[in-house]
Design a protein around this nucleic acid. Structure first.
Lengths: 183, 183
DNA sequence: GCCTTATCTTGTCGCTGTCAAGATAAGGTT
DNA sequence: AACCTTATCTTGACAGCGACAAGATAAGGC
């Protein structure tokens, strides 16, 4: 049994793990099929069989991201306290702890938006979002509640994007800033 | 006098114009120094003298974008009606009519954030933003609980980002959606 | 034991950004 | 006018990239 057998065994998972690591460490622009392959220790064309092309790999990565995103949001929604605030905190927390992945997930230019799994994963996450935001104390009219949900989403998402672009003031801290926003 | 003299005369401006055209037509990922050079009709290394590297060119492009952005916002701030709402409309209008440029401007990964001109241009735009927003907090919708300028900024910026990522519902139209948000 | 299929490697192509070296022209100096 | 300095642009090269084709290797079904 050589140190590196011809068949990896779990190459797909290993590639995804390495890809996410590079994504968070070096950013999306440094995330190449060849860099991933090097990190795992396989040939540069190995990923092709599992993901087709780079777009395919990124789409799978974003899909897994949305699944984890949905889980985090769902957990926040069922936690104690104000669900909508908890949701906002979880949203920002996700973007903050995995900025590379978060930006990738909302970077449709490099993703295969028509992928079925991807669409399902995004729908899953957004369903939790709109469900919680809809039952928030904003009134009984469904149209108004829908609008409120959208406003909340834009508010929190804008906060994340500005934060990740380094546009938010460093004083006071981001936590405090967010709490003021959600207050 | 040949059809293409050795010295272009206004190569810098021509390169920037071509770059913006490619940026809006094909997106940032298709915007290469070589593509720009081809579009203008010069050699592939011609841009280097004017911009150093690709990052330098993109930074100049984003700087010009922020200058135009500041002008648009300033015009909206001094227009009739509610200044903050006008500002929000102008913000979205800019992102909508020049999505490539807008995304580039908020894509710090590919820009030289320490560039003096760039910093001045961004400060110029954000000054108008905070000046107007500080006076009149946006909306009475309870979803927007933050009453500061930051909340308005996040709300409108988030709207833009979600819009440009194709995440907003197509029905009703974006204009109506935005008006409801600013209401 | 054989054959089909999945998996991975090697080699190649055109594209990219960047650098080095040279060609060309413009402007100032004498 | 002649020269020289400088700015501008071209040519050529190199490594890294995504993608494709062809071949090597191993796993699993029969």
């Amino acid at each position: 049994m050589p140190a590196r057998p011809y068949h990896h065994g779990a190459l797909r998972a290993a590639l995804l793990e390495a890809a996410e690591q590079i994504l968070e460490r070096d950013g999306l622009d440094q995330l190449s099929l060849r860099a991933i392959s090097r990190a795992v220790g396989v040939s540069h064309a190995a990923p092709a069989h599992h993901f087709g092309d780079l777009r395919g790999l990124l789409t799978v990565l974003a899909t897994l991201g949305f699944r984890r995103f949905a889980i985090s949001l769902e957990a926040a929604a069922t936690s104690a306290g104000d669900p909508l605030r908890a949701l906002g905190r979880a949203y920002v927390q996700f973007a903050r702890t995995q900025p590379g992945l978060f930006l990738l997930m909302f970077h449709h230019k490099v993703l295969a938006g028509d992928d079925a799994d991807f669409q399902q994963a995004t729908a899953e996450a957004f369903a939790t979002l709109s469900r919680v935001a809809a039952v928030s104390p904003l009134g009984t009219d469904t149209a108004v509640r829908g609008r409120g949900a959208l406003a909340s989403w834009c508010l929190v998402h804008g906060f994340c994007m500005l934060m990740l672009d380094g546009r938010l003031p460093s004083q006071p801290g981001l936590d405090l800033l967010l709490e003021e926003l959600l207050a």
